[in-house]
Design a protein around this nucleic acid. Structure first.
Lengths: 110, 110
DNA sequence: CCTAGTACTATGCATTGTCAAGTACTAAAT
DNA sequence: ATTTAGTACTTGACAATGCATAGTACTAGG
C-alpha cells in the first residue's frame, strides 16, 4: 500500500505496540513484523517507540538468547503501562467514533 | 475531554477540513468552530493547515466582507484538492479498518 | 471608550515517524 | 572457508504537523 499520509500513524503505533505486548511479552523484531501486518512501518520507527516507553516506565525489559541470531530484548507491560494503554485505547476509540460519524454524515450529503 | 495523545489528530485534521469545504465554501473561523465540535483543536492549528493546503493548490481563496467583524477569507476546494481528499479519505478508511479490526481481536482475547 | 466577539497571522517549540547506516550473531549455500 | 541471507538491535539527522502564545484589526453594545 502506498501511503501518502504517514501522519495517520502518529500515536496509534504506540497503542498498537502496547496492545500486542499486553497479553504476552514480545521482543522488538517480532513487534516490527506484527505491526507491519496492520500498518506499513519500518524498524527505525518501532525501536525508538519501545525505547521511549521503557524510559517512561511503561515497559520493563529482559534479554533472552536466541538460536536464530543475537539475543532478543523482551518487553513486558508494567502496571503503569497498562493504565496508559487503557487511557490511550479509550481515547482512540472516542476519537475514532467522532471522526467516523462525521465522515458518514458527509457521505450522506453527497 | 482531556487529551493525552494529541498525536491521533495528525493528518486527520487536514482530511476533516477538506471534507468540510467540499460541499460548500467555508471561511477559517467557521472551520475552527466546526472542527472543534468533532475534535478538540485551536485556531493556531487550523489556520496553518488552510495556508498549507492553499499553497499546495488544494484550496483557492477569496475575501468577503462581514457585518460581524473583519473580512472573511473563504476556502474553495480545487479539482486537485478533491483528488487529494479522495485519496486521503480512502487511506484513512483503510488504515482505520486495519487498526479497528486488530483492536477488536485483542478485546476478544481477554 | 471599553469590552467582547469575530477573524486572521506569525513564531518558536515539542512530538513522533522516516531514512539510512551501522553492529553483530547464526545458519545455509558456494 | 567465505559469502550471503535472515535475525536483531541502535543511532542520528531530518521532516511533518499540532500547540501555545501573542499580536493585529474590525464591529457592536454597554
Amino acid at each position: 500500500m502506498i501511503i501518502i499520509n504517514t501522519q495517520f500513524k502518529k500515536g496509534v503505533l504506540e497503542l498498537l505496540v502496547m496492545l500486542m505486548v499486553e497479553n504476552e511479552d514480545k521482543y522488538g523484531y517480532e513487534l516490527v513484523e506484527e505491526v507491519s501486518k496492520i500498518v506499513d512501518v519500518n524498524e527505525g520507527t518501532i525501536y525508538p517507540i519501545l525505547k521511549r516507553l521503557t524510559n517512561e516506565n511503561y515497559f520493563e525489559t529482559y534479554l533472552k538468547e536466541s538460536t536464530e541470531g543475537p539475543p532478543r530484548k523482551y518487553y513486558h507491560l508494567t502496571v503503569l503501562g497498562k493504565e496508559r494503554k487503557d487511557k490511550l485505547l479509550g481515547e482512540w476509540i472516542k476519537f475514532n467514533e467522532n471522526v467516523s460519524k462525521f465522515i458518514k454524515e458527509c457521505e450522506h450529503n453527497e
